[in-house]
Design a binder for these strands. Structure first.
Lengths: 241, 241
DNA sequence: CAGTGGTCTAGACCACTGG
DNA sequence: CAGTGGTCTAGACCACTGG
């Protein structure tokens, strides 16, 4: 299972193995101690600690000095807000399997939508996103028509939109501004997400811009709060004092 | 400057020293290499890497294999003041008049609250916050008993807790981690905020720690989403060089 | 007290970047 | 090629938790 000839670093192999074992329910609420893992995988303590550190940072594990390393039970997927990651990446980091269902991909009438950000004809892509087969979020992306049409020629149920934009279309996403709030789920959102009508959903509105500040994407997402939360780190003093 | 007899771990001392030097503009764009830092501080590579890893995780530094460790220009970390500053300031900035009503200030039984973060006797302060006389948020702060008792001797309906902690009590708040989510308002929350029972409220859980990472405050806030949202700027953390 | 994670040393070899 | 960070070993002692 753990192979030192494998080009994948040992700590990554161990980290992946631990995630698999945790998901398989192999541990009740605590993983083996560092010394036990050293024995089990025949590696050094540094390597074991490196593997664990990754999972702690992802919010999967939690260390308690003197007691052990515990599994963060039932914790929702946590997205770090300091960087702009695709949902696909975030789901994978939590050791879950991402998938998507395409709900809509079409040109829209701007006048019907109060999206004055991208002042042009728009193309909207809407997807229902799953983690391990469970509905997690509804995502609506709005692009300039030319960009949207190009995107629609790809298989949007398997591709990552960020990858397509950046690698296939040569568009560089630089920065985003997000507004996080909540609202009561309407009948459609509730039905798609599998929650009661009127239940709270986390909402995100986002504008992504290129390096010059030109808007490239407008986005609106609806997340199940029992499965997804946002995490923000703040520091006393930024670097630029 | 770096003292191995100091009870503060060496990697924390080095990490703090690096931040100070970066802020002082001692480096243009790149910090010294790991080998150079080993020489400078007479420590092992593990210790240097541990110090650097912390700053990379905070978004202050960025490592590039084969090239060096670079300073992340442009603001990776959430400004302290934007999110974490007192709600008082935020309300004032919006041109509204802040006020508070003290709902509770008392020692609590830790066993009743699943707050395993501060592993000690806790003191809880709960306030209803208003903007222009309209209910905006409920805020619950949890402190170590000694801190909470001192706080309770001030007029918590007019004072800003952050000011009291820092200026009156000499406590330095260094960093915070917040989790933003939502839930359906229960009867009490709905009544206080003046919204229907079951309506969506924005929730924030926060842990504030000192420079060593020791938790100083646990916080839980409930916000009216029609009057308060979170705005976050993010950057794409591409690997492109 | 035995067991846990936290800190630290002093090495080694590898993979990557640039001239 | 010299210099960089990435991975890894095999130790050591410390501080904390619980019985």
């Amino acid at each position: 299972m753990i192979d030192s000839n494998n080009p994948i670093p040992l700590h990554v192999q161990i980290s992946n193995a631990l995630v698999k074992q945790i998901k398989a329910g192999m541990y009740k609420d605590k993983i083996p101690s560092e010394r036990e893992l050293i024995e089990a995988y025949t590696v050094s303590r540094t390597t074991v600690r490196q593997a664990i550190a990754k999972l702690v940072n992802d919010g999967i594990l939690k260390k308690v000095h003197g007691k052990g390393t515990f599994i963060n039970e039932g914790k929702p997927i946590q997205e770090w807000l300091s960087n702009l990651n695709s949902l696909t990446e975030t789901i994978k980091n939590m050791g879950m399997a991402p998938s998507s269902k395409l709900l809509a991909a079409e040109q829209i009438d701007v006048k019907d939508h109060s999206i004055d950000i991208l002042n042009m004809d728009l193309y909207m892509i809407e997807r229902l996103r799953y983690a391990d087969g469970e509905p997690l979020a509804i995502e609506k992306h709005y692009y300039p028509l030319s960009v949207g049409l190009k995107l629609s020629s790809y298989d949007l149920e398997t591709e990552t939109i960020f990858d397509l934009l950046e690698n296939e279309m040569g568009i560089t996403l630089a920065e985003a501004e997000q507004i996080i709030s909540t609202e009561d789920a309407d009948a459609r959102v509730a039905g798609l997400l599998g929650i009661p009508k009127g239940a709270s959903v986390l909402t995100v509105e986002r504008i992504i811009a290129d390096e010059l500040g030109n808007p490239l994407e407008f986005y609106r997402g609806y997340y199940r709060p029992d499965k997804y939360v946002f995490r923000v780190k703040s520091k006393r003093n930024g670097l630029r004092s």
